[in-house]
Computed example of a mutant assay.
Amino acid sequence: MEIKLNVPSIVCSGCGDTITKAIKTVESEANVNVDVAAKTVTVEAQSSEESIKQAITATGHTVA
């Protein structure tokens, strides 16, 4: 299942790396694509959208 989330707090590729690592702790096989310019995170994963959002917010980022 593909989930596309708007994460307005992304400002650099370091943010993307942090978010990617957090999502991979929830699901190691997840395919994560962070677009810094568009401030979006696209995740191809089996986990629920809620668990992905929780992983992102646990890093201090906000999900719109």
Rank of each mutant, 00 (worst) to 15 (best):
Q46R: 08
S47F: 01
S13L: 04
A38H: 06
H61F: 12
E44N: 14
T25H: 12
V26I: 13
K24D: 08
A30D: 10
A30W: 09
P8T: 04
I10C: 08
I52C: 09
A30V: 09
T20Q: 10
V11Y: 08
T25I: 01
E49Y: 00
N31M: 03
V7M: 04
K21T: 11
K53A: 04
A30T: 08
V36T: 08
T62S: 13
K21Y: 01
I10R: 07
V26Q: 06
S48N: 06
G14E: 00
I56K: 10
G60W: 06
A58R: 12
A58E: 14
I3V: 14
D17N: 14
G14D: 02
V34Y: 09
N31F: 00
N33C: 00
E2G: 00
A22M: 04
T40P: 07
E2W: 12
I52F: 07
S9E: 13
V26E: 12
E50M: 08
N33K: 15
C15G: 07
A30P: 09
E27H: 05
V41H: 01
N6S: 14
D17V: 13
D17L: 13
T42V: 09
N31T: 13
T59V: 04
K4L: 13
T42S: 12
A58H: 11
V43K: 09
V43F: 11
A30N: 10
V26P: 05
T20D: 12
T59Q: 15
A22P: 07
N33P: 03
V41E: 09
H61I: 01
K21A: 15
K4G: 00
M1C: 03
M1I: 06
S13A: 15
V7K: 07
D35L: 01
E27P: 03
V32M: 05
C12G: 02
P8K: 02
A30R: 10
S13H: 13
N31K: 15
A58Q: 13
E49W: 00
H61W: 06
T62H: 09
V26Y: 09
V7E: 06
H61D: 08
T42A: 09
V7D: 03
T18F: 03
G14L: 06
I3F: 08
E29W: 02
K4R: 14
T20H: 03
V32Q: 04
E50Q: 13
I10V: 12
T62L: 06
A64P: 02
I56G: 02
E2K: 15
A38K: 15
Q54M: 04
E49P: 05
A38R: 13
T57G: 00
V34M: 10
T42N: 06
C12K: 00
I23R: 04
A38N: 14
